[in-house]
C-alpha cells in the first residue's frame, strides 16, 4: 500500500486560513489501510479544524467526503455535484489522488493534508515499514525476496557495505542491514553460492531517473 502521514495540524490550519467553506476529501484505499486518510481520519481532522476555528471565532463549514479511489476518473468525477459548493478542497488521499482531483477541477485548489511517504506493509497493528521504491526492474529473484534498492540505505547491489554492524545499518541502529538479511536468506535457502554472483551496475532509467513513467495497455483502452 501507499503509506502517508498526516501533515502537522498548524500547517493544515495555515493553508486553510483564507477559507470558510471547505471540502475535506478522503480515500477508501491505501490511506484508509494505513490509518491516515480514510473516512475515520477525515472525520477526526474535520472535527479538529471545526474546534480550532470555532475557538478562534472563525467558524468553518466542512463537507467530509471519502471517495472509493482518488486515482480513478470514474470516482473523481463523482465530486462534480459537491466541489463547486466549496471554496477549496483539502485531501487526505496520497499525492497521486491529490493531483488527480486537481487535474479534474482546474478552477479549484486541492491542498494536501498528508505527506505521502512510501510503498509499504503493515508489519503489525499500527506499524508500517517500507518495502518497495518502484524502481521499474525488480531484482527480488536474485536477492530472495529482500529488496536492496529499498531496504539498503545506499541501494547497493553487492553488499553489505562497511556500515553494517551486528546486522544493523549505520544509518539507524534499529534498521536491519538489507544485505545481512539477504545473506541470511541465502543460507536459510541453501543458496549461498548465489552470493558469489557479482551484480552489474543497475540501469536506473526504469526508475525515477528516467523521468515520470507511463504504462499503456492498448487492449484495455476505450
Amino acid at each position: 500500500m501507499i503509506v502517508a502521514n498526516r501533515k502537522p495540524f498548524e500547517e493544515i490550519i495555515e493553508m486553510l486560513k483564507p477559507y470558510s467553506k471547505i471540502l475535506l476529501l478522503g480515500c477508501n484505499e491505501c490511506v484508509t489501510v494505513c490509518a491516515t486518510g480514510g473516512a475515520k481520519e477525515v472525520s477526526v481532522l474535520a472535527s479538529e479544524i471545526r474546534l480550532f476555528r470555532q475557538k478562534e471565532g472563525q467558524p468553518v463549514e466542512i463537507k467530509e467526503l471519502t471517495l472509493e479511489r482518488n486515482c480513478d476518473t470514474e470516482y473523481v468525477e463523482s465530486l462534480k455535484p459537491a466541489i463547486n459548493d466549496y471554496e477549496v478542497a483539502i485531501s487526505m488521499a496520497c499525492g497521486c489522488g491529490i493531483q488527480f482531483v486537481g487535474e479534474h477541477y482546474r478552477d479549484k485548489l486541492v491542498l494536501p493534508a498528508v505527506d505521502t511517504t512510501f510503498y509499504g506493509v503493515a508489519e503489525e497493528q499500527g506499524v508500517w515499514t517500507e518495502r518497495c521504491q518502484g524502481c521499474g526492474a525488480c531484482v527480488l529473484d536474485k536477492t530472495l525476496g529482500i529488496c536492496p534498492v529499498t531496504r539498503c540505505a545506499k541501494s547497493i547491489f553487492n553488499g553489505p557495505c562497511g556500515g553494517s554492524q551486528g546486522g544493523k545499518c549505520e544509518v539507524n541502529k534499529e534498521t536491519p542491514c538489507a544485505w545481512q538479511l539477504i545473506v541470511d536468506r541465502y543460507k536459510e535457502m541453501n543458496m549461498l553460492e548465489k552470493y558469489l554472483e557479482i551484480q552489474p551496475m543497475k540501469n536506473w532509467s526504469t526508475s525515477r531517473d528516467g523521468g515520470p513513467r507511463k504504462r499503456v495497455r492498448e487492449d484495455l483502452k476505450l
Binding site: 495540524f9 474546534l51 480550532f52
Partner: peptide
Amino acid sequence: LLLEESGI
C-alpha cells in the same frame, strides 16, 4: 494531543 493541537 488532538485537543492540544486544536487549542481546547
